[in-house]
Nucleic acid binder design. Structure first.
Length: 476
RNA sequence: GGCGCCGUAGCCAAGUGGUAAGGCAGAGGUCUGCAAAACCUCUAUUCGGCAGUUCGAAUCUGCCCGGCGCCUCCA
């Protein structure tokens, strides 16, 4: 079965063919580390994580890069106000980003290049563009990309088929550009830039990089150095980056190398809250920290995100999050049951229900990463598996085989809650369960129920099964 | 003004020409000391509205209504 992905460049779902299989180069536009990334930002990163994990499930050797933008207008302004350097200012948010990433169980990328660590590559790229006549120095000393000189500008965002809103950006521009469409590659250093340490020497003048430059420079530098190529297999990001960011990346990169920059462009849709886009500007953001404080399990959030296709807007609501939590919990229950049924046996005989699961899962994911359908396949399997377990239809070896597949699929979605339990809690619960059993045997159900309430207050749920009392810690 | 996406049960959400997946919630049942979990059964003759194309449309076309996004260094 072929993996098919939607390519923004063609506006079509097309077969995915990496340049040099089994290697896949995946570059995702990461956060601007000027504040805590909100869960809307993380929806995109989760989408990228899903893509990466599924590619790996398919056997590809995925090389992943995510940039950290640590120098831009917002950062400089904020650092100036805080009276710190850009470096100092961004460090803590970069750190926070990694914490949040880990909390949401996003697999770390191979590289997280920071813009300020690649100034030399950016300078080289600008020089190349100047040499090729695709860039020029403006009256203010800044260097601009000459859109008119680059053939094919607007292919990604279909600029040729649209008109700019009258007066939207032409007159309001603060720089000296020859053409309104031109964009800054290198901005002359201002006093503030110098103050916060956001200025570097370059042959074409002291200054700092324009926003789009970093992705082109870093992506090219990393894959050129490692694989000797100048074309990425996949470049991902949020839909808002299609224009101008990615359009400009193409112009810079292809202008400099003369080679296709990216084979497949993928864009994730927005996370909405209260029906509108989550954005710092609207003051309606929610961070991963907020989620943590509210006791939202990472598996719940992942489940919520993957329950909607990545190219569809997703409205974040308490009800939806609750539904996702319940669903995720169901997966955890099944996984635990399977573990008990397998009882440490080695895989022996693959039940056909498992083959069905794997087929349905792959079919869904192959269709442009249809996680909602993949989850439907998983839940259908959950019902069937529980029935088989009720019937005692699977041997320990078969259960072990089921686990093997189930876990491999969950490795892609990573939506099974994991409740970490401390040893002393375990000992305490074990003691309480014994006390409750004594009460139950004595027929003192009031006392037994009191103990159940007691542990429930500590987040522990007790379940009486034919094999004895089991307990689980509620997620979150 | 230009470009684009979306509107499916109480909620979330698949389905893009062949007669409505899946999850959550809800109702009843099995099991249980009671629960929990799990399983079984039920829950949209109907897919924003109106026309049209077709043997057949949630799916294609047109118009209308409603929501969202991009055109601003916003994931």
């Amino acid at each position: 079965m072929v993996l098919r992905l939607y390519n923004t460049l063609s506006r079509r779902v097309e077969p995915f063919e990496p340049l040099a299989p089994p290697r896949v180069t995946l570059y995702t536009c990461g956060p601007t580390v000027w504040s805590y990334a909100h869960v809307g930002n993380f929806r995109t990163f989760l989408f990228s994580d899903l893509l990466r994990r599924y590619l790996e499930y398919r056997g590809y050797d995925v090389f992943t890069v995510m940039n950290l933008t640590d120098v831009d207008d917002r950062i400089i302004k904020a650092a100036g106000e805080a009276g710190t350097s850009v470096r100092e200012f961004t460090d803590r948010f970069a750190e926070a980003f990694f914490e949040d990433r880990d909390y949401l169980r996003i697999k770390p990328a191979d590289l997280y290049p920071r813009a300020t660590a690649h100034i030399e590559h950016m300078i080289a790229l600008v020089e190349q563009l100047l040499d090729r006549g695709l860039a020029y120095r403006g009256e203010d000393g800044s260097v601009y990309f000459s859109v008119g000189a680059f053939n094919g500008y607007g292919r990604l965002s279909r600029l040729d088929t649209r008109e700019l809103k009258p007066g939207a950006r032409v007159s309001s521009d603060e720089y000296s550009k020859e053409d309104a469409r031109d964009f800054a590659l290198w901005k002359t250093a201002s006093t503030l830039d110098e103050t916060v340490g956001a200025a570097w020497d370059a042959p074409f003048g002291r200054g700092r990089p324009g926003w789009h430059l970093e992705c082109s420079a870093m992506a090219l530098a990393e894959i050129r150095g490692r694989f000797g190529i100048e074309t990425l297999d996949i470049h991902a990001g949020g839909v808002d980056l299609v224009f101008p960011h990615h359009e400009n990346e193409i112009a810079q990169s292809e202008g400099a190398t003369g080679r296709p920059f990216v084979r497949c462009w993928m864009h994730g849709e927005f996370l909405l809250i209260g029906g509108t886009k989550m954005s710092k500007r609207f003051g309606n953001t929610l961070t991963v920290r907020d989620l943590r404080e509210e006791g939202v399990d990472p598996a719940s959030f992942r489940m919520l995100v993957f329950s909607t296709h990545y190219r569809q807007q997703l409205n974040l609501t308490d009800e939806a999050l609750e539904a996702a939590t319940e669903g995720a919990q169901r997966l955890a229950e099944l996984r635990e049951r399977l573990g008990r049924a397998a009882a440490g046996a080695s895989p022996d005989g693959v039940p056909r229900e498992v083959e069905q699961l794997e087929r349905a899962f792959a079919e869904a994911m192959n269709d442009d990463l249809s996680a909602p359908n993949a989850l439907a396949a998983v839940f259908t399997f959950v019902r069937v598996a529980n029935r088989r377990l009720d019937e005692g239809a699977w041997s320990a070896g078969e259960a072990a085989a089921v686990i093997e597949t189930f876990d491999r699929i969950m490795e892609v979605l990573e939506v099974v809650p994991r409740a970490e339990v401390e040893d002393d809690l375990t000992a305490w619960v074990a003691e309480r369960i014994k006390a409750r059993q004594r009460a139950r045997k004595a027929g003192d159900y009031a006392a037994a129920d009191a103990i159940r309430d007691e542990v429930a207050a500590c987040g522990i749920d007790l379940k009486d099964t034919p094999e004895g009392t089991r307990w689980t810690k509620r997620a979150g």
